[in-house]
Amino acid sequence: GIDPFTGEAIAKFNFNGDTQVEMSFRKGERITLLRQVDENWYEGRIPGTSRQGIFPITYVDVIKRPL
């Protein structure tokens, strides 16, 4: 089901994660935001896939912030 505490964002740019914990994505992908890790990073996942990880806040347009 849908978790009411998650947020939502759209990727503004392609992001290629450097490490296992970073999640790569392509511009235009819809991302579920799980939490804000710190002032620069979100943790999120791509709905319908097993992809999950952290990524820079500046790479996405936030539609709804996670609670």
Rank of each mutant, 00 (worst) to 15 (best):
A9Y: 05
G53Y: 01
T32C: 11
V60G: 02
N40K: 11
K64N: 09
T32R: 07
G53A: 01
R65G: 12
E29P: 00
E22I: 06
F13Y: 13
Y59C: 10
K12E: 03
R51L: 04
V62A: 04
D38H: 08
K64G: 06
L67D: 13
D18E: 14
N16D: 14
K64I: 08
R30Y: 12
P56I: 03
T6C: 12
V62K: 04
I10A: 03
T32N: 08
G7P: 07
G48E: 08
A9F: 04
S50W: 08
D61T: 14
V37G: 01
V37D: 02
N40V: 14
R51H: 04
G44L: 01
M23W: 04
R26G: 07
F25Q: 00
F13Q: 13
G17E: 03
Y42R: 02
D61P: 00
Y59N: 04
I31Y: 00
E39F: 08
R30A: 07
Q52N: 07
F25R: 00
Q36S: 07
E22T: 08
F13L: 12
I46L: 03
G1A: 13
N16A: 10
Q20N: 13
Y59I: 05
E22M: 13
G7H: 13
A9I: 04
V60T: 04
F13R: 13
F5D: 12
R65I: 13
G53L: 01
T58F: 11
L67G: 15
R65Y: 15
M23H: 01
I10D: 02
E22D: 05
P66C: 07
R65S: 14
D3M: 12
L34C: 08
D38N: 12
E29M: 03
L33D: 05
F55C: 01
K12Q: 06
G28K: 03
N16I: 15
R65H: 15
W41N: 08
N14M: 05
L34D: 05
L67W: 06
E29K: 01
Q20K: 13
V62T: 07
E39I: 09
N14Q: 08
K12Y: 03
P56E: 03
P66D: 05
P66E: 06
A11W: 01
I10R: 06
P4A: 15
I31M: 04
F15D: 03
Y59M: 11
Q36R: 11
A9N: 01
F25M: 03
P4I: 14
G28P: 01
G53K: 01
N16E: 12
L33R: 02
Q52I: 09
R45G: 05
I10Y: 07
R26T: 13
D38P: 02
G28R: 02
I57D: 04
T6I: 13
S24G: 07
G44C: 01
Q20S: 14
Y42E: 01
I63Q: 07
R65M: 15
N14I: 04
A11L: 02
W41L: 07
G53H: 01
R65K: 15
D61K: 11
G48Y: 08
R35E: 04
D38I: 05
D3P: 12
V62L: 08
P4Y: 15
G53S: 01
D3I: 12
I63G: 05
G17P: 06
P47W: 09
R65L: 15
Q52D: 03
R35K: 10
R45Y: 14
W41D: 02
E29A: 03
T49I: 02
M23Y: 01
N14H: 10
Q20C: 12
D38K: 08
F15H: 05
G28V: 01
P66Y: 04
E43F: 14
Q36E: 10
Y42I: 06
N14P: 08
S24R: 05
F55Y: 01
S50H: 11
L33K: 02
F13A: 12
K27T: 08
G48Q: 07
E22K: 10
F55N: 00
I57N: 06
N16G: 06
G44P: 01
K64Y: 09
G1C: 14
L67S: 14
E43Q: 07
R45S: 11
D18Q: 15
I63A: 06
S24I: 03
Y59T: 08
K64R: 12
T32D: 09
E22R: 06
T49V: 03
R30Q: 08
D3R: 09
L34Q: 04
Y59W: 06
T6P: 14
R26V: 15
G17S: 08
G44T: 00
N40F: 14
E29F: 02
F15G: 00
L67V: 13
A9M: 05
R51A: 03
E39P: 09
P47L: 09
R26S: 13
G53I: 01
P66I: 06
K27I: 11
F13D: 11
V37T: 04
R51I: 05
S24T: 09
G1F: 09
N40L: 15
T19D: 12
P47Y: 09
I10W: 06
N16Y: 14
T19Y: 07
P4V: 14
A9P: 00
Q20Y: 11
E8S: 11
P4E: 14
K12H: 05
Q36M: 10
E22W: 06
I63D: 05
E22G: 06
R45W: 11
F15V: 02
Q52V: 09
D18A: 15
W41Y: 12
K12C: 08
D38L: 06
N16K: 12
D61C: 12
G44I: 02
Y42W: 15
T6M: 13
F13T: 10
I57A: 12
I10P: 00
R51F: 04
P66L: 06
F5E: 11
M23D: 01
G48A: 06
R35Q: 08
V60A: 04
D18I: 14
Q36H: 07
V21Q: 15
K27H: 07
A11H: 01
P4G: 14
G53T: 01
D3F: 11
R26P: 02
L33F: 04
D61H: 12
V37F: 07
I46W: 01
E43V: 08
L34S: 04
R65F: 15
V37R: 05
L67A: 15
P47G: 08
D3K: 11
N40E: 12
K27L: 07
I2H: 14
I57K: 11
N16S: 11
P4C: 15
N14S: 10
E22F: 11
F5H: 14
D18V: 15
F25D: 00
E8L: 15
F25E: 00
T49G: 07
D3Q: 12
P4Q: 14
E22A: 08
P56V: 03
Q52H: 12
T19K: 14
K12A: 07
Y42V: 06
G17N: 04
E43C: 11
G44K: 00
I46M: 05
R26N: 10
L33G: 04
P47S: 10
R45P: 00
R51S: 03
N16R: 11
V60K: 00
R30W: 09
T6F: 14
I2P: 13
V62S: 03
E8C: 14
V21M: 14
E22C: 12
G44M: 01
Y59F: 11
I10T: 06
I31G: 00
K27M: 09
R30T: 10
S24E: 04
G28Q: 03
